[in-house]
Design a protein around this nucleic acid. Structure first.
Lengths: 218, 218
DNA sequence: GATACATTCAAAAAATCTGTTGAATGACAT
DNA sequence: ATGTCATTCAACAGATTTTTTGAATGTATC
């Protein structure tokens, strides 16, 4: 750490924050944390990392100011330190989506239904929720649902969806949502349901964005 | 590049964008490019880098989709690929500023006058510009001024300011600006002028933000 | 065409980052 | 106290990055 000009010191500090975003595993962890607090163990399992490795990534992000943690008994729970972090991740996605041909290809291949139907906007859904005209479907895993979800949402994790189609009404419109703008769960759920003749659309973005928009949650 | 799940591939792509922001020199280059197009040579000189090194950093950022370039005669001019990149950098600064104690210290030490006087908002300045009540002072280097500046602004680069105080009116308010929220030029100019009895305030942020806000430029 | 110039490429050394291992820490339960 | 559990630390090998050097590329100018 040679003593550079204060200006370069400042740039170096901001660069630390950016570096903390600069790894696939860390972005995956951040998406999980966008849902709410999680223990190291839960994050490691979801992201497919060893405990030690997850711990390292978490420590790095905490140092960079992206995360905060608190102790709860034996566990340590991590969370995003500030809503501004969610903004930052969103800005990153926006740039990546627009400018990276490779991302577009992946998105085009995997999210092929992407433009098949316009997503429902949060405002629209909030309005129609009040009128009770719509069934809201949360396709995230049960624990993420338990940690917070949209009002009146029913939870059918994606992998159970095929065998629980009867739990959904065929005559009402279904709106599916999951974690956020690049979460595939709702896309796949919508594709599956559409194949079975349901009237289904996706919610724009996901639960974290709904909550961040100040709309009611349960 | 092992073939991971598409999801992790997507994260890896976004991580590339973040990595491209993850170096002090690159953030410095980005701030310079926020002013407008620049040649490799100009960027290398300003950032204190060798040509080859600057070229490498630029190539990396172009690959990540942050920058675009075009040839103009012998030179190659780089620019930000998209306004979304400016948003991303702004989001990064916001997170860094809020969450990094070290940044706060640097800012507190170097930008000590920061809170001495509230900056003038863009709206305020735009309004008062119409009434002709205010002198706008651009303290960036002459070439950056030439590439674009606020209407009616006069250009006195910071290092010339001390010997050109007579060019400024003492009875009217002066509003100084420079490159952006973490540019020190306007802070130092304001401090200097205040010491000499001028009525001076800073504009919030800088030229790129003014332009991005859709306000008129020359 | 030959030359000058701005930029990029290629290669290599130095520095940094990643993921694994096994030991250390700190809190809870017996 | 002792044991257990979740997490962190320390250290290491392997992989990436960063920077420098000198040569190569492609454009304009003579």
């Amino acid at each position: 750490m040679s003593s550079q000009s204060p200006k370069q010191l400042l740039y170096a500090q901001f660069a630390e924050v950016a570096k903390a975003l600069g790894h696939g595993h860390r972005l995956e962890i951040l998406e999980l944390l966008a849902q709410g607090e999680r223990s190291v163990e839960a994050l490691a399992e979801r992201a497919g990392l060893s405990m030690a490795n997850a711990s390292q990534h978490l420590r790095l992000m905490r140092r960079a100011g992206l995360l905060a943690s608190r102790r709860n008994g034996k566990q340590i729970l991590y969370r995003m330190s500030d809503p501004a972090v969610l903004d930052l991740v969103a800005a990153l996605h926006r740039v990546g989506e627009r400018n990276l041909a490779e991302v577009r290809e992946v998105v085009a291949g995997y999210f092929h239904q992407r433009d098949a139907l316009e997503p429902v906007s949060r405002q629209d859904l909030a309005r129609r929720l009040k009128d009770g005209l719509v069934t809201v479907l949360d396709v995230r895993p049960a624990d993420e649902f338990a940690a917070g979800h949209l009002p009146q949402a029913i939870n059918i994790p994606l992998r159970e969806l095929a065998r629980r189609l009867r739990d959904l009404p065929k005559n009402r419109e279904v709106v599916a949502y999951c974690r956020g703008p690049h979460c595939v769960l709702a896309f796949e759920a919508a594709a599956l349901l559409r194949k079975h003749g349901f009237k289904v659309r996706r919610l724009e973005d996901g639960y974290p964005e709904w909550k961040a928009a100040g709309l009611p949650v349960n």
